[in-house]
C-alpha cells in the first residue's frame, strides 16, 4: 500500500512540478502570478489530441509538436496581453487580473471547438502495470516520470549554464540593469514565456496519457502548480520541484485517510495555509 501511494505521489508530483516550473520561471522574470498558465496546460493536451488522434502523428512526434504549440500560445498571450501592459508599467495585480481574463477566454475557445465532451489520447492498447516493490506502475507512468525528470534537468542546466539562462537571471534580478548591460529584456521575457508554456503544455500532455482531456482541466491543474510553486517559494526552480513532490505526497497520502473527493481540497488548503503562514515559501525570501 505504502509503495503504491509513493508511486502515485511521485507521478502526480512530477506533473505538478512541471506546471510549477513553468509558472516559477515566468514569475521570477516578470513578477506576477500568471493565471493563464493553467489554460496553456489545457492547450497542450488538446494540441496533442489534435496531432495524435486527428492527424495521426506518432505519439512522440505529437508530444513535441503539441508542446511547441503550447509554447506558441503562451508567447502569443504574452505578446498580445502582457506586453502592452508592461509598456504602460501596469502594477502586478493588473497583470494578474488580465491573465485571469486570458484564462477564461482561451478555455472557452477550447470549449467552443471541442465541446465539453471528455476525449482521450490514442496511445495504443492499455497494458497491465509492472509490479515493483509491491506497487504497480504502468509504462505510461514510467514515461511520465522520465519525461518530467528530463525536462526538469534540462531546465535547471539551461538556466544555470547557458548564456541565455544567465541572461534570464539578470532580467529577473533587475530589468533596468539588464537593459543597461545590453540584454534586451523583452526578448528574454518572450523566451521565458515560450519555455514556461512549453513546460505547462508538456504537463498537460503527460496528464492526458493517464486521464481524459476536458476543457476545464486547466483550473485545478493551475492551482496545484501555483500551490507547488508557492510552497517551494515562487520563482525558485528547485523549490518548484520540492513543492510539487510535497503536494503530490500530501494529496496521495492524504486520501489514505480522507475520502478521495477531498483530494483537490487538500491542495487548496495547503495553498492558503502557506500563503497565510509562509507566503514566500520554504526556500523563498521576501524581496
Amino acid at each position: 500500500m505504502f509503495t503504491q501511494l509513493l508511486f502515485n505521489s511521485l507521478i502526480a508530483g512530477s506533473i505538478y512540478t512541471l506546471i510549477a516550473l513553468g509558472f516559477s520561471l515566468i514569475y521570477r522574470t516578470v513578477r506576477f502570478f500568471n493565471f493563464a498558465h493553467g489554460v496553456i496546460y489545457t492547450c497542450g493536451a488538446y494540441a496533442a489530441y489534435a496531432f495524435i488522434n486527428q492527424l495521426g502523428f506518432h505519439p512522440a512526434a505529437g508530444f513535441i509538436c503539441a508542446s511547441v504549440c503550447a509554447g506558441v500560445v503562451g508567447s502569443a498571450v504574452d505578446a498580445m496581453v502582457y506586453k502592452p501592459l508592461r509598456r504602460r508599467k501596469a502594477p502586478y495585480l493588473v497583470l494578474l487580473i488580465a491573465s485571469l481574463g486570458a484564462f477564461i477566454f482561451l478555455q472557452n475557445v477550447i470549449l467552443l471547438i471541442y465541446s465539453s465532451q471528455i476525449v482521450s489520447l490514442n496511445t495504443g492498447p492499455v497494458k497491465a502495470g509492472h509490479l515493483v516493490l509491491g506497487g504497480a506502475i504502468t509504462d505510461m507512468q514510467i514515461v511520465i516520470l522520465c519525461t518530467s525528470l528530463l525536462l526538469f534537468a534540462a531546465l535547471t542546466l539551461f538556466v544555470r549554464y547557458t548564456r541565455l539562462g544567465k541572461a534570464m537571471r539578470a532580467v529577473s534580478d533587475d530589468t533596468v540593469a539588464a537593459g543597461v548591460v545590453g540584454i534586451n529584456p523583452e526578448r528574454i521575457i518572450g523566451i521565458v514565456f515560450f519555455a514556461g508554456s512549453v513546460l505547462a503544455g508538456a504537463a498537460g500532455i503527460l496528464t492526458s496519457l493517464e486521464t481524459g482531456i476536458e476543457p476545464t482541466m486547466g483550473m485545478t491543474a493551475m492551482l496545484k502548480g501555483i500551490t507547488a510553486a508557492v510552497v517551494g517559494g515562487a520563482g525558485s526552480i528547485p523549490g518548484a520541484a520540492f513543492g510539487g513532490m510535497l503536494l503530490g505526497c500530501a494529496e496521495n497520502f492524504g486520501i489514505w485517510k480522507l475520502p478521495a473527493a477531498w483530494k483537490d481540497c487538500i491542495a487548496f488548503v495547503i495553498l492558503v495555509g502557506f500563503l497565510l503562514v509562509k507566503p514566500y515559501g520554504i526556500v523563498g525570501k521576501k524581496d
Binding site: 506576477f32 502570478f33 473527493a261 481540497c265 488548503v269 492558503v272 500563503l275 497565510l276
Partner: peptide
C-alpha cells in the same frame, strides 16, 4: 488574511479560499 497579506498574494489567497468553499459545498 488581509491583515497580513496584501496585493497579489491576497488576490491568490482569496482565490484559494473561494475554491475551498466550493470544494466543501461539493464534498
Amino acid at each position: 488574511p488581509a491583515l497580513r497579506i496584501t496585493g497579489d498574494y491576497l488576490a491568490l489567497t482569496t482565490f484559494g479560499l473561494g475554491l475551498i468553499v466550493y470544494s466543501i459545498a461539493l464534498n
